[in-house]
Amino acid sequence: MTPPSHSPAASTSGLRDDEQPASAERTAVPGHSPARPPAAAPGGIQGEPAPPPPAKHRDAFFDNAKYLAIVLVALGHAWEPLYAGSRSAAALYIFVYAFHMPAFTVISGYFSRSFEMRRNQLQRLVTGVAVPYIVFQTAYAAFRYWAGDLPDFSVDLTDPWFLTWFLVALFLWRLTAPLWRIVRWPVPLALAIALAASVSPDLGSGLDLQRVLQFLPFFVLGMCLKPEHFRLVRRRAARIAAVPVLVAALAFAYWAVPRMNDAWFYHTDSAQHLGVPWWCGILMQLAMFGCSLVLTACFLAWVPGRRTWCTVLGAGTLYGYLLHGFLAKASRWWDWYDADWIHTPWGALAVTLLAGVIVTLLCTPPVQRALRFVMEPKMTWAFRKEPSPPPGAPQGRTA
């Protein structure tokens, strides 16, 4: 669960910074055109070397949002074993599940707006998404076999396990990005596809397509968003309005715990598999889509826009996302929750704090440096060299 969170020019995962549109970083003075320097002769103006292009900078808001969302993912997994014995824990669990992955997916779509199947983009898609998927799908299989959860060691790349589904989803969503820019009504079309998937029990489990398609509208919506939309939800009025909405949503979650099947929040099953008529599944999907969007907006409204102590951790959300899965599963297999004190209010608070601390540590720069060789490998050996342009051909793209 998800998506993003590294340099916009060097990363491809939705849990990391992606192809950040240049339009998100530039502003123009009304009534004026940006000044253009005179054309430089080879070697630079008057013999001086041409100045380097301006360095891209990270947006602290999105780094903060990704870090806070990954903390919510970890908290949700930490609360899951408390679900059956505590209505309050169950309410928090479904409240968080209503928006944490939709928020990740919207941000992933936003940073995919410039994906155009260019050579460098496809290479980063392979090294930043496909390779981590293969590595962690294999690592999880080995871990399951070692822990006794698998009778025989085997790796099935067509069947994402636990957290790796988001990498498959991101890979497939990103490949469809050019399509969503040319259709007239991208979000309604993506929503129609999600609704069709939700009432298709024969879709199968290969590549976790149910979840890939049911989360698709959030990705497409993110592609359609512009910087001003995020500025709108960060206004003071929106921040104030978000408080009663979040409180009401949490109260509704508490009420719904004994009355609602929490499987709706996972988006992994068709309506028929959940035991309801197909038309009920369509209504639920529409309701869940609307609810998730509102809560995502409320969540983003309270994300700090300035640099904070956690901003640097936003670059490591993919690390925290994939690595904390080992501890989440180990805690179930090795009965870490069997102690009676954990099922007290103070125990639940301790579990919450511990989960937040662990996932925070897993997002830190030392962990990123240690594992970058598998999470962001360069793999220059795997790609053909780009042919040199013929003499006189234009160099690069123009804005």
Rank of each mutant, 00 (worst) to 15 (best):
P3M: 12
A24C: 00
V29W: 11
S33H: 03
R36P: 03
I45H: 14
Q46N: 13
G47P: 04
A50W: 01
P53L: 03
R58Y: 08
A78R: 03
L82A: 04
Y83G: 02
R87V: 09
A98C: 13
F99D: 10
F104K: 08
S108M: 15
S108V: 05
F115D: 01
N120V: 07
Q121R: 04
R124Q: 10
V129L: 13
P132N: 11
Y140E: 01
Y140V: 09
Y140A: 02
F143E: 03
A147C: 03
F153N: 01
S154D: 10
V155I: 14
V155Y: 03
D156G: 00
T158C: 00
W161P: 01
W165G: 02
F166E: 09
L167I: 12
A169L: 06
L179V: 15
I182W: 00
V187Y: 06
A190D: 10
L191D: 13
L195H: 05
P201W: 11
L213D: 02
F218C: 08
M223D: 07
C224T: 15
P227K: 09
F230A: 01
R231D: 13
R231S: 04
V233D: 01
R234V: 02
A241Y: 09
Y254N: 06
D262L: 13
H267Q: 15
D269K: 15
H273Q: 15
M284I: 02
Q285S: 12
M288R: 13
C291I: 11
C291K: 14
A297G: 10
A301Q: 05
A301K: 03
R306G: 14
G316N: 07
L322K: 04
L327Y: 13
A328C: 07
S331H: 06
W333Y: 13
D338A: 15
T344K: 09
L349T: 14
A350R: 08
V351N: 00
L354D: 00
L354M: 11
V359N: 02
P366A: 01
R372M: 06
T380E: 14
T380L: 12
R397A: 00
A399C: 00
